[in-house]
Design a protein around this nucleic acid. Structure first.
Length: 438
RNA sequence: GGAGAGAUGGCCGAGCGGUUGAAGGCGCUGGAUUCGAAAUCCAGUGUGCGUGUAAGCGUACCGAGGGUUCGAAUCCCUCUCUCUCCGCCA
């Protein structure tokens, strides 16, 4: 969520960012919030003054009773009743105005980083790095669906029997590969990259998903439980970003707790509403997949470096696995709702080209404000400093499904076998290659 | 699922419906003392919103939301959470 005072005082800044996002339909909202914020201030001012008066008079009434002058006290009650009447009206108005502000503000996307280029879609993204050479095959490379089927490790017919489209069954070395990747990712992050591993709930309440920005706007993309959970609407997590970023919601962190860096493995559940017809085959787009996620909470001034580090941690995994990739900075139109700036890492898939495999975003204070997450900057003058909004970041590091796609396709051999990347072999019981089962 | 107890500031813990943002203690910060430290003494020590250049001032908040009242941390209702015991269960 954006700062409401910024919306009221500098609408032009917000509008400029919306233009770069190609989100012109939101421009009117900015002006709407601006006038509502002014309206709210007037209401708050009157409300506070009336409250002050009521408190004053009520105190006097108490004093009069004590002094044994009940008649005089009774006489003053009329004024309080009058004030109370007006206050009731004001409260209702104020609640209404604040709800309106909130509703509009919650639907406005984050401000973009100054260097994010304008653009409508991925065609305007900027390639900032390319690593590795796509392999030259001396045979026709097969799609991962075929490679996996022939090896007997990937089965979409049976997953369809269980749950329908967009699910998968991994078996044998395939299932183990999935687990090996999770372990490899987590081990790398905890021992090499300095993250603390957390294991979190896979179901969250509504306000949690509002905190990171999935709600209220993208409810259609989430799986919602049919029954309320502990008194609240509840959703399956679409990514560990949601529970992990919210870990410290409503807290005031000490300066020396920062930066906080968490990694977490969770299944991810996405309804993928509106993706009809896209990637219907294979592991690319699933209703359920596994992912290790990286989450940072940092001082604003440390965010630039943090974003670079975050990207390099995701890239490092692909390099360790020997998978060619390129990194792109998303243009305004392709940058996610809450993101301030986002880099996508795209792995090379022989039968598909470069495909997104990780998305690393910095959210500035957008999520912190929604979560009411703050930190207290170190004091510079001996006095306690005021709480401030930290910046949050997150990135995939990495999902297993798309990495399995990349491994099956990039490491396939003419005989149908798939070589296991060296770094994974310790996690695969020393297995060097997955051989055809026939 | 059943029965009970509870939810107050960073922590512990008081709080007859009236001047309580909230006693007391601990912790923390600054100062005094000391060669330095411990101990001791003094002072300070929540968050949001509004207003102000600022100091400050006003207002709200004692799990959440409603209600009663001139006035609610204190009374009433609903919800959520935590703890204990029983049952069930991975």
């Amino acid at each position: 969520m954006l700062d409401k005072n910024l919306l009221a005082e500098h609408p032009e800044i917000v509008k400029e960012s919306l233009q770069r996002r190609n989100a012109t339909d939101s421009l009117a909202s900015v002006d709407a919030v601006g006038s509502l914020v002014a309206e709210r201030k007037a209401l708050v001012f009157e409300r506070d003054n009336l409250n002050a008066e009521r408190n004053r008079v009520s105190k006097d009434i108490g004093g009069l009773y004590k002094a044994g002058k009940p008649q005089e006290a009774e006489a003053m009650k009329a004024r309080v009743a009058e004030v109370a009447e007006r206050l009731k009206v004001l409260e209702v108005e104020l609640t209404g105005v604040e709800a309106k502000i909130e509703a509009i503000a919650m639907d406005l996307p984050n401000l973009l980083h100054a260097e994010v280029p304008p653009g409508k879609d991925e065609s305007a993204n900027v390639v900032v790095k390319t690593w590795g050479e796509p392999r030259r095959f001396d045979f026709e490379p097969q799609a991962h669906v075929e490679v996996g089927a022939k090896l007997g490790i990937l089965d979409f017919d049976r997953s369809a029997k269980l749950a329908g489209a967009r699910f998968s069954v991994l078996s044998g070395a395939g299932a183990r590969l999935d687990r090996a990747l999770v372990s490899f990712f987590l081990d790398t992050h905890t021992t090499k990259n300095g993250y603390r591993e957390v294991a979190v709930p896979y179901i969250v309440q509504r306000h949690v998903a509002e905190g990171t920005g999935q709600l209220p706007k993208f409810e259609a993309d989430m799986f919602k439980l049919a029954e309320p959970l502990n008194g609240s609407d509840a959703f399956l997590v679409p990514t560990a970003e949601v529970p992990v970023t919210n870990l410290h919601r409503e807290e005031i962190l000490d300066d020396d707790q920062l930066p906080i860096r968490y990694c977490a493995f969770t299944p991810c559940f996405r309804s993928e509403a509106g993706s009809a017809g896209k990637d219907v085959r294979g592991l690319i787009r699933q209703h359920q997949f596994h992912k290790v996620e990286l989450v940072w909470i940092v001082r604003p001034e440390d965010a630039e470096q943090a974003h670079r580090d975050l990207v390099s941690h995701a890239e490092g995994l692909l390099e360790a696995l020997g998978l060619p990739y390129r990194t792109v900075m998303l243009c305004g139109g392709d940058t996610g709702f809450g993101a301030h700036r986002c880099y996508d890492i795209e792995a090379w898939i022989p039968t598909q080209g470069y495909r997104e495999i990780s998305s690393c975003s910095v959210f500035s204070d957008f999520q912190s404000r929604r979560m009411n997450l703050r930190y207290r900057p170190a004091s510079t003058d001996g006095k306690k400093s005021k709480p401030k909004l930290p910046w949050t970041l997150n990135g995939s590091g990495l999902p297993t499904g798309r990495v399995i796609v990349a491994i099956l396709e990039n490491y396939q051999q003419a005989d149908g076998s798939v070589v296991i990347p060296e770094v994974l072999r310790p996690y695969m019981g020393g297995l060097e290659a997955i051989e055809p089962s026939v």
